[in-house]
């Protein structure tokens, strides 16, 4: 196991290197000159000021050199400063915003799994029966409704009609405590979760149907075990490998892609900040967040890989 982890870590480093390089190059390819963006009208007129600022920001160096310098700093935790809000460090911004996004994504995945597993299992167990058809229909709806629509509906229902929860805003745990925080987190997380739930439950259902055909399920039945025990203790684990993969991929995607929901609920998350930075051509912020998210992605997938061997002991040997 230790060997496997070591090998994975090595691969992780190589991937991270590639990922940072590619996302660095891509942000470089964005149109617009950051120096101009910072100086505005003054810059376009004052050639000298422009050159000076470019030198200060290191923009006059060849791009590979810029990358190496940036990487050197990044490894030490210094991702530079925002061009627009001078003095605001990119790492600091991420440090402040990331926990919010992370919490949202985690909650969304957990809610999605809590719903998807029983729905998928029942769908497979009652394949073709009304339970299966009803859940399939529900899943179909959840899949086809965009999550901001779900968000709006949730706001209307729980905030406007029932007035149980706030419509928007974000309470940090550190400021207001866990309860207040959850009150603001639950609606956006649920809005994000529903689509995920739909995808996960389909996967659980189809893998579970395949597993239920296996001989070992028949032998478990012949032992007189209860159906529920067979479903959850015998069939679920061998049916969860593809869901585990997808959870990894989608979790990564949620870290970078909760923009719409963050905007809708006015949540100070990473996605919100990224969109802002893009509209302002705030290159270093874009770069920092992109690289950070990409890194998170790679790490999550490594963790999922390792998790396979927990799910299936046969993988441990190879």
């Amino acid at each position: 196991m230790a060997k496997i982890i070591a090998a994975r870590l090595l691969r992780l480093l190589a991937t991270l290197f590639a990922v940072t390089f590619i996302s660095f190059m891509m942000t470089k390819a964005l149109p617009g000159d950051p120096a101009v963006a910072i100086l505005g009208q003054d810059g376009i007129q004052n050639e000298e000021l422009l050159l000076e600022l470019r030198a200060e920001l290191g923009l006059d160096e060849p791009i590979p050199v810029q990358y190496v310098t940036w990487l050197g700093n990044a490894v030490r935790g210094d991702l530079g400063e925002s061009y627009i809000n001078r003095g605001q460090s990119v790492a600091g911004t991420i440090g402040q915003r990331f926990p919010v996004t992370l919490q949202l994504a985690l909650m969304a995945i957990i809610i999605a799994l809590l719903l998807a597993i029983p729905i998928g299992v029942i769908g497979a167990y009652r394949q073709g029966k009304w339970q299966d058809q009803a859940s399939s229909a529900g899943v179909q709806v959840a899949l086809s409704v965009p999550n901001f629509v779900t968000g709006i509906f949730l706001i209307w229902l729980f905030a406007v009609k029932l007035e149980w929860l706030p419509a928007s805003n974000w309470n940090r745990i550190s400021d207001k405590g866990v309860i207040a925080n959850l009150k603001t987190a639950i609606l956006p997380a649920t809005a994000l979760a529903l689509t995920q739930m739909a995808i996960f439950s389909r996967l659980v259902r189809s893998d579970m149907i395949a597993t239920l055909q296996e001989n070992f399920i028949l032998s478990a039945r012949a032992k007189g075990l209860s159906d529920r025990f067979i479903l959850f203790r015998h069939a679920l684990r061998p049916s969860s490998l593809s869901v585990a993969t997808l959870v990894g991929i989608n979790f990564g995607a949620l870290l970078g892609g909760t923009v719409i929901i963050e905007t809708l609920f006015a949540i100070p998350g990473l996605g919100f900040r990224l969109i802002n930075a893009i509209s302002q051509r705030d290159i270093l912020v874009i770069q920092g967040i992109t690289v950070f998210i990409a890194t998170g992605y790679v790490i999550i997938n490594t963790v999922v890989d390792l998790f396979y061997s927990v799910l299936d002991p046969r993988i441990r040997r190879s």
């Binding site: 296996e214 001989n215 070992f216 028949l218 032998s219 478990a220 012949a222 032992k223 203790r233 015998h234 684990r237 061998p238 799910l311 299936d312 002991p313 046969r314």
Partner: peptide
């Protein structure tokens, strides 16, 4: 009543 199945390779749960 109990049953012993044909294929011992597949009649045990591989992950248990």
């Amino acid at each position: 009543m109990a049953m012993v199945f044909q294929d011992p390779m597949t009649s045990l749960n591989p992950v248990v």
